[in-house]
Design a binder for these strands. Structure first.
Lengths: 349, 349
DNA sequence: GATTCTTGTGGTAACGTTCCCACACAACGG
DNA sequence: CCGTTGTGTGGGAACGTTACCACAAGAATC
């Protein structure tokens, strides 16, 4: 009843117990080749009796496939990225693949370290949201990988999955315009981030199409965090006159931080300041007022990313760039200036 | 300049290039044994030239140590657990160990699958927040592991790390009492969860110590999610009379859901209903009013868990149970009934 | 000058798989 | 009756390491 405490059963133990060779056991387990019913039976019985479980290290060593995938995201603690990671996890589990998760904190050096860890662990491939200035490292990565987010253009020949930023930004600019905020302030991430560039470019295009001077939009730059949003908003508020201010934030955490700054300044959202977020994290539903935001399909992005990666690894025709559409979640952080008279205040939720 | 596309350098490639045997290379890399300066030099040079990186699969296979750790938590998408995972990640990275992350969704079957994946991947150990009815699986896990959360008592001889629930609950009951809510309603998790039992037990003890009948406290049971909290609160509200209601929720997500339910019922928090959370997730700062809550040191729990696990693996004297103290974060979700006259409403933030 | 000790090094056997080749045996066609 | 085909099986080699043992050459000891 009590087994040897430490040693785990190997394929050889199973073979001996079943009275066959390890080749036969391997064939039964792989379901390949022709095997007599009685051999299969005794092997299966021996597997059950010994509690045999294949050693992935040995398998990987021999077959060159470790059954491991890596994912490097900015921060697992950021709800959006947690969502992405979760999608990747679930999809990978379907193929009996395990996920190594790393947080880079938007730090190129940390990212490099994580990439090295992935290489040493012999992962079969990786999903990466790259830090802006890490492209050299990435070029030398040497393993299949798919990009996540908006940095795809720097790597023309690797596939990527992300949200459709142009569509999302236009969606945002459209609601803003419809509510009477044709020239919202922009609360952007640090200059070095690629996401910022694409965001900004689309806003410009959108303005130009409407014969509107993009230079008229106030811009503030801050870290992609609550604290960053709070400080950025404080600066924006300092520049603000008495008129209503509308802000389009580059992510929800910043938008929520901005909302705090508004409150701290003794102003009200949305009466004095309208705020539009970007990401669609659950926390946006708890704020007061609820955060109106553009939702990125985080989980789906994670799912698609591993699917793309699996294709890549299998050498299947590369599926290229995938841009997922985003949708608007209306809660209460936008005032409607298009209706004159008493400002209509949307209810939270 | 262009290297062979696929093959990665092995220790043998390095040895050949350096003109020594692989034993020597291994010694240099491990920093063990005596080595002449010139041998060390040429090895180091060869390593740099070939871009050699040790193959962890092979290392693990030979040494029996994979350099991998697993963590199984309920849901990486829950901010508290993300925090724990992040702490574990960071601590593991310090020892050049990578983390396999899994979400069990409080589902015993999923958990069993993940445990199996961990075994196959030959992780050196695992950190687990076990689903209640999974103890048999855990007993048969066969690898070093440390428990996270409040289920330690079921496994007397494994070490565990968690928050100090009795201390935390008392802390909560004390604020509640100080504010004039001596008999708060309890919004608990499903009956099968261990955390619930410990929470409830401490509340009882606390009441008994104060000559107060614990049976007087209304109890509602719900899933540990926003939606669960919302429904649980709705039920509580249905039972409520006209007096002020105070609720102690078993986690912040539920508390936030409860806050939504209050709003939906046309009531106000904290004027009509006081809500106390438990976890200390960042989202609690965004709600309106801000959620007053008991903060668990999530990140630290993750850190300590891998430290305990590393000890366990190294066979160092087991460090047993660790209970981390929690602290109160006062925001605005508690009314103060101890001051008579006009209900004092705390400010959010 | 023979013995022992140091210092540095090389060779080789595992670790647990998978993959490929070889072989035994039966059945079959000529 | 002998070659051929088919079926099921066993026996290695290889994957990239590490751990151990052996050994050469010079230094130190008596």
């Amino acid at each position: 009843m009590d087994k040897k405490p430490l040693r785990r059963a190997t394929i050889i133990d199973v073979a001996e117990r079943a009275g066959v060779s390890k080749s036969t056991v391997a064939r039964v387990l792989a379901g390949s080749g022709r095997i007599s019913d009685e051999a299969r039976d005794s092997v299966l019985k021996a597997v059950a009796a010994t509690g045999y479980e294949p050693n992935h290290l040995a398998v990987g060593m021999r077959s060159g496939r470790s059954g491991l995938l890596g994912i490097v995201i900015p921060d697992i603690t950021n709800p959006f990225w947690a969502e992405v990671a979760r999608g990747a996890q679930d999809r990978a589990a379907k193929d009996d693949i395990s996920l190594l998760v790393f947080s880079s904190d938007w730090d190129a050096e940390k990212e490099a370290r994580h990439l090295r860890a992935l290489r040493r662990a012999r992962v079969d491939g990786a999903i990466i949201n790259p830090v802006a200035d890490s492209f050299d490292d990435l070029g030398r990565f040497g393993l299949p990988f798919v990009l996540i987010g908006s940095s795809a253009e720097r790597f023309p020949d690797t596939s990527s999955v992300g949200s459709d930023i142009p569509q999302a930004v236009r969606l945002g600019m459209d609601v803003l315009t419809a509510r009477g905020h044709a020239a919202p302030a922009l609360l952007l991430g640090p200059r070095s981030r690629l996401a910022r560039a694409r965001f900004l470019r689309t806003v410009h295009e959108h303005c130009v199409e409407r014969d509107f001077d993009p230079a008229a939009l106030p811009i503030e730059e801050a870290e992609y965090t609550v604290e960053g949003g709070r400080q950025g908003m404080a600066r924006l508020l300092a520049r603000k006159g008495s008129e209503h201010l509308a802000v389009f934030a580059a992510n929800d955490l910043m938008a929520l931080g901005a909302m705090m700054a508004v409150r701290e300044a003794g102003l009200r959202c949305p009466e004095d300041v309208s705020i539009l977020g970007f990401d669609g994290i659950p926390a946006g539903a708890f704020s007061w007022p609820g955060l109106t935001t553009i939702e990125k399909p985080g989980r789906l992005i994670g799912v698609r990313a591993v699917e793309g990666l699996l294709d890549e690894i299998a050498g299947r025709p590369e599926h290229g760039r995938v841009y997922m559409p985003c949708r608007l979640i209306e809660r209460g952080s936008l005032a409607d200036l298009s209706v004159p008279a008493p400002v209509r205040v949307a209810a939270g939720r």
